[in-house]
Amino acid sequence: MIRVENLVKQFGAKRAVNGVSFSVERGEVLGLLGPNGAGKSTTMRIITGFYPATSGRVTVGGHDVALDPIRTKALIGYLPESAPSYGDMTVHGFLSFIADLRGLSGSAKKAAVHGAVETCLLDSVLYQPIDTLSKGYRHRTCLAQAILHDPDVLILDEPTDGLDPNQKHAARELIRRMGETKAIVFSTHILEEVEAACTRAVIIDRGSVVANGTPAELKARSVTAGCVRVTLAGTAPEAAVAQFGQLPGAARAELLPSDNGTQGRVTVRVYPQRDEAGAIGAAGAALTVAVAQAAQAGGWQVQALSTEEGRLEDVFRSITLPDTVAR
């Protein structure tokens, strides 16, 4: 549905987007991650036809944005970063205006506006001037504008920014649900959102794609992925760390700061051995069992035992942090 090929955007001396490529099919929700200033918004503005690309190509539903902007824009619903709207209009007036420009009229227009109002829970403020709305409601009004015409493609720049926790949750659910039948790209700084709503995530740093995969694949790149986390009672911390660190398949073990020593409880993280490529071997994969057996042999009481999936935050930081510091 969306194809981005070698996108470059130059602002004077500044290269905001530097050879970004990805594609999104119908049924996919792509999360766009990256530090501030990475080029997420710029990429989205090029896809939606607001900025022309310096070089590279964007096609949406087979139409080239640069060559056939009107047809492309008709396929897209776009929520810009600042969620702009006309403050002097009422919510209803604003959505009607957008529907007019989307070529909707009569009963189709009525149904479209009604549907968007219902989805974004705007009933209670329908005839209020947008200027007088709270930030979250203004944001939802602009979101309603984006989904009004039931587009095949949604480009949402930080769609949950400024929403309360309930609304954040609702927005994620909405994105996930709509993603079943549409192609969606959304950017966010909230990593849980990626796991909650995305089928795939792309991390952009300084204008380039530095990671592209499913949330699970990305998490597996975290240093803590595949680690065994065990909480014990009835042991000295040092003894447990030493014992687990020597297990076959274990690289090392460390004491976690959570309630160490209190009521004699100890939490230890055991890292599996990895080869050069970072893959975990057979012994590492069986580490959980080995840890459980070692605890039993030592006569320690196991209160909790789990294998860690890794955390997106760690991956995000390890990929993008060195660059941020260097800047």
Partner: peptide, 14 residues
Amino acid sequence: RLGTLELLLTLPVT
């Protein structure tokens, strides 16, 4: 100033 230009120019109008 309001950023609505971005909205307007990404609608299917020339």
